[in-house]
Simulated assay, not measured.
Amino acid sequence: MTLAAIPSPPQGVWYLGPIPIRAYAMCIIAGIIVAIWLTRKRYAARGGNPEMVLDVAIVAVPAGIIGGRIYHVITDNQKYFCDTCNPVDALKITNGGLGIWGAVILGGLAVAAYFRYKKLPLAPFADAVAPGVILAQGIGRLGNWFNQELYGAETTVPWALEIYYRVDENGKFSPVSGTSTGEIMATVHPTFLYELLWNLLIFALLMWADKRFKLGHGRVFALYVAGYTLGRFWIEQMRVDEATLIGGIRINTIVSAVVFAGAVIVFFILKKGRETPEVVDPTYFQAQAQSGEDGDKTVAVAGKDDDSETPPRR
């Protein structure tokens, strides 16, 4: 018997007339907003134009959603392409969700293409965005709590998560979009919470390491990838939801291990130190410098005029 437990929300979808308001989507949107805000501050501190961040988001977010869905469908293809399956469900983002690996890969490629078009270095932006990305991932994990998904095995630990029996308006079992009947089906390990807390820990590590060691040239992003995949490796092994297996091992466990090793190698290969503002965005740097010089001249001229109009002391 559990001494205490974390309750799941009674539902994860509300309706505004015929329009469904999904908590999962709201969590993702909240994460994106926070990431944009933080990245603006960090990119500006590195010498980049903060106004570019929103432009990048317009490119990266749709690409990330598409990439995340493609990865999910590929790695869980048996859910969409079988004798009794409807392949059209593969296009429904709310059916099965997104895969973070695909989101980062395709979103990253879209951002790289954008910076290549702008003829600006990608690494400073990647370092600026990394903490915001993992913070957004943590916020997005709250959506899994509302959906009662991505949990671990049954347990009686004090922080166990209660999984409720949910039904739709017709009384049919509907674990994601239904409403709780109050019946507890199981108490399980809240692996979504473990990952959320791990993401917050890596976020704090990135912010500290970047400030302490003046990281640059893509090393903050490499550290983000290494940190996230390290946690995902052991959390993935705690999950009991259906997943594609290779040799009896969950595919995301294998991906985590491979990507972690690659990220660690890249971190130590990349150049130490941090780019100067002139390198981050030469045009923006020159414009800011010119603006500063013009401001100094204006102050100087104003001071001269004030002095000339001030009557001599007697």
Rank of each mutant, 00 (worst) to 15 (best):
P9T: 11
P10K: 11
V13K: 02
G17Y: 14
C27Q: 02
A30Q: 04
G31V: 09
I32Y: 04
I32D: 00
I33Y: 13
T39H: 04
K41N: 09
L54Q: 02
V59W: 15
I66W: 05
V73K: 03
V73I: 13
N77P: 00
Q78D: 07
V88G: 00
I93K: 00
T94K: 09
I100G: 08
G102A: 12
A103R: 06
V104H: 09
G107L: 13
G108C: 13
G108K: 11
A110L: 12
V111Y: 01
V111K: 00
R116L: 08
K119P: 00
L120D: 09
P121Q: 08
P121F: 13
P121V: 11
P121G: 10
A123Y: 12
F125G: 02
A128L: 09
A130N: 04
A130R: 01
I139Y: 07
L142R: 00
N144W: 04
Y151W: 15
G152E: 01
G152K: 05
A153Y: 02
T156E: 10
P158A: 08
P158Y: 10
W159Y: 14
A160K: 02
A160E: 00
A160M: 04
L161S: 03
I163L: 14
E169H: 03
S174M: 10
V176L: 07
G178F: 09
T179P: 00
M185F: 06
A186W: 13
T187G: 01
L196E: 03
W198Y: 13
A209E: 06
R212L: 02
K214W: 03
G218S: 08
R219M: 11
A226W: 08
I235F: 10
M238N: 07
M238D: 04
D241R: 01
D241W: 02
E242T: 14
A243N: 07
R250P: 06
R250Q: 04
I254G: 13
V259A: 03
G262P: 06
F267H: 11
F267P: 10
R274E: 13
E278Q: 12
E278W: 11
V279W: 09
P282D: 03
A287H: 06
A289D: 08
Q290M: 12
D294G: 03
T298N: 08
T298K: 12
A300N: 10
A302I: 03
G303C: 05
S308P: 02
S308F: 14
S308E: 14
S308R: 14
S308W: 12
E309F: 15
